[in-house]
Nucleic acid binder design. Structure first.
Lengths: 250, 250
DNA sequence: TTTGAAAGTGTCTAAAAGACAATTTGGCAT
DNA sequence: ATGCCAAATTGTCTTTTAGACACTTTCAAA
């Protein structure tokens, strides 16, 4: 549980975790990626998902939480496993080999990774004094075209899992601040589903679910009609789902 | 790709695949489990999911297909990944340790497993001349209460994934023979969802989807009104989904 | 020919989804 | 003070889907 006493030799050289960290800036979905720097010969500088080897005595979920906390400083983070990725050729790109040589004791080991995705409030992220964190950047999902290793493939699967999951469980609140507007929530769902959703129908449905608390508080300082602020009502959500309700799709 | 030239030393001692193989006998869902024999001191004889270590140069899906084919002889099998399971304590039971000693070169290695579930037509399974296959048995899902390692946990997750998946994609046909009746399909959905479904409503919906071809052929030799036989219409299914349709739930 | 056992079939009601546009409200510029 | 802009807010109608519900048909076997 406590990482302080761990030595580098306690790392399992064959297994890692990689995390797709989703954020939302009220405009678009972003992903937190690592810039590995371009000091790698003349090969491409591809960004990578944050990740690391796991310790021999560490559970997979635990390792993912550790990597996320080391990177973002966030402790209570929404985490969901995407799956295991272990194509023997996942380390085919030259730039990836080079990079591994510079950071791993056994750069040629075959590594099978457990991929996770997590949902964070974008403002909670303040880069920590960690070797990786300084080079972390939020990149718009729509602009990501290629990543290191098999990370682009992982990202695609993570996106798909997120889409499916949010139809069943309203996990989107993890991407929003405590207080949010219906328009922000609406925009979030449009971004996740990658399609426009009718405003009135969206509002009707989400309000009917009764999982939002109206905070009787308005947005301030916006140059237009200020919006009501809401928060997620965890208790009502529990009540709703304990009877088997699972239709949060739009 | 070809396993013939592989040596036991090419096995990756830290990573395995385990498969939840679902079958349906028109009455209930069954799972193909391995009986490890009781020659293990006085510890419990728990059944296990079929699985094995993967080869160093083998992809995870490939390994799962290999294990399934070695066991069942079935080549084109429906396969879906459940996820990675790597609790360091997954080999806590005494009987599991004993068993590993008898079959593994490195029985104490920490093993992270990629779990899969597969859907097979129960009659396609004919035990093969493979060490495991002889001891494979179809066990009713409802009777499984404890399994070796963390296999029971894997089974629970696999069940849940199957439930979710079948709401989105009509994968149930993989559990039925080429020709089947609407009653059989109905029963299958009841078994998977573990709840009764109204017969008329079920039929109305599935017929409306237009993914069944009526074979104009009847059941023979049943002591009651014989049923129409149908087959799954792959082409119509493609047409249906290419417009984004994904509501196969009941 | 009777009986048993499962197959097959239709209607009504309620709920949900989908399409669609005008009004309100605050900040800001003039 | 007035007018303007930008986004928030709100309701109705139609279509589709879900859910409840019971009797008739058909074959084989007794």
């Amino acid at each position: 549980m406590v990482g302080n006493t761990r030595k580098k030799t306690d790392l399992n050289p064959n297994n890692s975790v990689d995390c797709v960290i989703f954020g939302f800036d009220f405009e678009q979905i972003k992903v937190l990626l690592i810039d590995r720097g371009q000091n790698l010969g003349n090969s491409k500088n591809l960004r990578a998902l944050p990740g690391n080897l796991i310790y021999e005595e560490e559970d997979l979920d635990e390792a993912a939480y550790r990597v996320l906390e080391e990177l973002t400083g966030i402790k209570d983070i929404y985490l969901e496993q995407v799956g295991a990725f272990g194509n023997p050729n996942r380390v085919n790109k030259e730039s990836d080999r080079e990079w591994l040589k510079s950071i791993r004791d056994e750069p040629n080991a075959r590594v099978i990774t457990a991929a996770y995705y997590s949902l964070v409030k974008i403002d909670d992220f303040v880069p920590r004094a960690h070797s990786f964190a300084k080079k972390a950047e939020w990149i718009p999902l729509s602009e990501i075209e290629e990543l290191a290793f098999d990370h682009f493939e992982i990202l695609q699967v993570a996106k798909e899992k997120l889409k499916q999951k949010i139809k069943i469980q309203p996990i989107g609140f993890n991407l929003l601040p405590e207080k949010f507007t219906l328009s922000q929530l609406h925009k979030l769902y449009e971004c996740i589903f990658e399609k426009p959703l009718d405003k009135r129908n969206f509002r009707r449905k989400i309000q009917k679910l009764n999982i939002l608390t109206n905070l009787k508080e308005k947005q301030r300082g916006v140059p237009h009609k200020p919006s009501q602020l809401y928060k997620f009502n965890e208790e009502n959500y529990q009540l709703l789902t304990q009877n088997g309700y699972d239709n949060f799709g739009f």
